[in-house]
């Protein structure tokens, strides 16, 4: 019968490899991000100046960055949500120059000079926007993930005057999906604000 043995050389090699792996700093992700940034060639980076919630930001970004990723990853405004990232769910809805739009289908570098409003910019002087208040009062959400997009879309729906009937509200809110099915509360919230 053949005897299974581990050679001295193999033992030393594997144990030293394991030891050296253990010495990789804890911030592997940060290190990886730094490397990634260094690898992206300068011609594929762009400087962009955008106004978000009335504050101007000038940033150097990878040209592939979507407005949604810029808001969440660079400006740490995580209210706007990444649902599908393909323009099918509306969770990333923001206002661009006062018009509702999908931040996941907008390139950050194309937002030069444009004014963006996110869910974080709705409340004024510590007071909730009437639509935010209405969502609270009418149970316009359950889990809350789609809610920032719903509220941004709902504010626009009222501004556009598309609140004539329940059917009209539903049609003009069809770009925002809610998997909990809080639609009745959402329609009620919009009717409440539209009636003011």
């Amino acid at each position: 019968m053949e005897k299974q043995t581990i050679s001295r050389r193999f033992f030393l090699f594997t144990s030293s490899m394991a030891a050296s792996l253990a010495f990789i700093p804890a911030g592997v992700k940060a290190f990886y991000n730094n490397v990634k940034r260094a690898i992206v060639r300068s011609k594929e980076k762009e400087t962009v100046s955008i106004i978000v919630n009335k504050q101007k930001h000038t940033l150097s970004v990878d040209s592939r960055t979507t407005l949604l990723d810029l808001l969440r990853e660079e400006l740490h405004l995580t209210g706007s949500k990444k649902g599908c990232d393909h323009g099918q769910c509306g969770a990333c809805t923001v206002h661009i120059d006062g018009q509702r739009a999908l931040s996941c289908l907008s390139l950050a570098v194309m937002m030069e000079g444009h004014e963006i409003t996110t869910i974080e910019g709705l409340a004024q002087d510590g007071k909730l926007h009437p639509m935010q208040q209405a969502f609270l009062e009418c149970d316009g959400f359950q889990c809350g993930y789609c809610t920032p997009g719903q509220i941004m879309s709902a504010v626009a729906c009222v501004n556009e005057g598309r609140t004539g009937s329940v059917a009209e509200i539903k049609e003009f809110m069809s770009g925002n999906l809610c998997r909990c099915g809080a639609y009745n509360g959402i329609v009620e919230s919009i009717q409440k604000v539209a009636a003011r």
Binding site: R100, A101, L102, S153, N176
Partner: peptide, 8 residues
């Protein structure tokens, strides 16, 4: 499409 996409 949707209102958001039509705006874009």
């Amino acid at each position: 499409a949707s209102p958001q996409i039509r705006n874009m």
